[in-house]
């Protein structure tokens, strides 16, 4: 199917058409913090933001707190019940390319060995409509990780800003199906295509932060035992965990029970390798020192994950740089590490 376009004024109508089939999520500041939220049927204010959500869209598939099952105890016996799932089809509108890429990375963990029965069904039921970035932050570096601000690789349908309109590209069958569900879309002209191409090239150039990822696995491996380097890198971190909780590729979780009288739930919740209790055991804690935790976070993304799944677990979204209360900086960290390893 050829590419289409839509006038920005008609986006609400387009979303309206899709919302007949899908539960629709859009970037929203409804509750004060930018995150993906259910569409209220009219809000399209996110189109003016040019910025991304603070909470990554992973939260739709892997919520900060999620019920795993509930149970009821009568006499000696337990009755276990799974949370009801209506298998509702979902549509995420306006996901940024690097956040869609992060989902592709997360899939690997949730599929590994045993399929995760909470994340994967939601993932399967959801179509992704990407929205290319126009004003990357200073902290963005997606182009160093094989991405681009307008990359369509991990979405079903891709929108690129071409002025008063968006160019609409069907990437997958699911995406092309979406195009046929609304009469708001018009055929794109050659001029539209050209404008889209120019926008893509220009935006690519706006990502100025660069990270050299060549041989980064090997370099991290040789830096592993350089304690003073990691101590220096970790010095200002306060172990608040924000860089991991808000990272679109981080997936660590805790599992706990809650019991009220005879009814209870088991739930999982986001956890972080930045927290000292994360690895605490009765007699010892292998990562009680902060520099070991910071080292683990960095190595997990740039060394261990590539060893296991052949892909760096970072998309260069820059959230960990923007949201850190003490300005800890991942690209500066990796540069420091590389300089140290190179100097021997």
């Amino acid at each position: 199917m050829a590419n289409k376009k839509i006038n920005k004024k008609n986006i609400a109508k387009l979303l309206g058409d899709w919302s007949k089939e899908f539960e629709l999520f859009i970037p929203s500041k409804d509750e004060g913090i930018a995150k993906f939220a259910k569409w209220d049927g009219k809000d399209t204010s996110f189109l003016d933001w040019h910025r991304n959500t603070i909470v990554p869209p992973k939260a739709i598939f892997f919520p900060p707190v999620e019920e795993m099952f509930s149970f009821q105890k009568d006499k000696q016996s337990y009755h276990i019940e799974l949370p009801s799932s209506d298998g509702q089809k979902q549509l995420i509108f306006g996901i940024r390319p690097y956040d869609a890429n992060a989902l592709t990375i997360l899939d690997k963990t949730f599929k590994d060995t045993y399929e995760d029965p909470y994340y994967l069904p939601k993932r399967k039921n959801t179509v992704l409509v990407g929205l290319g970035c126009t004003k990357p932050y200073d902290s963005c570096f997606c182009t160093s990780l094989g991405g681009s601000p307008t990359d369509s690789a991990n979405v079903d349908l891709m929108l690129t800003d071409i002025g008063d309109e968006f160019l609409v590209e069907g990437v997958t069958d699911k995406g092309r199906e979406l195009m046929s569900m609304s009469s708001e879309l018009e055929e794109a002209t050659e001029a539209d295509e050209t404008r889209a191409k120019e926008t893509k090239e220009a935006t690519y150039q706006k990502v100025t932060r660069q990270l050299d990822t060549k041989d980064i696995e090997e370099k991290l491996l040789s830096s592993f035992e350089i304690q003073d380097l990691w101590e220096e890198i970790a010095a200002k971190c306060i172990s608040c965990g924000i860089c991991t909780l808000l990272c679109p590729t981080c997936y660590c979780f805790d599992i706990n029970d809650e019991l009220i009288k005879d009814r209870g739930t088991r739930f999982r919740s986001w956890d972080s390798c930045s927290f000292p209790v994360y690895t605490k055991m009765p007699m010892e804690n292998p990562r009680i020192e902060k520099w070991r935790r910071v080292r683990n976070k960095v190595c997990h993304k740039y060394e261990f994950y590539p060893m296991n799944f052949d892909v760096i677990a970072c998309t260069g979204c820059g959230r960990c740089v923007r949201q850190c209360p003490v300005n800890w900086d991942i690209t500066q960290t990796l540069e420091k590490m590389q300089a140290k390893v190179q100097s021997g």
């Binding site: 805790d254 690895t279 605490k280 997990h300 261990f304 994950y305 060893m307």
Partner: peptide
């Protein structure tokens, strides 16, 4: 032995380098 939760290589905490003690 490491602290564990999921037991199946997902929750993250039992890693030794790239290996998960549980998996």
């Amino acid at each position: 032995e490491k602290r564990m939760k999921c037991g199946i290589g997902k929750c993250g905490r039992c890693n030794i380098g790239n290996l998960y003690v549980c998996r």
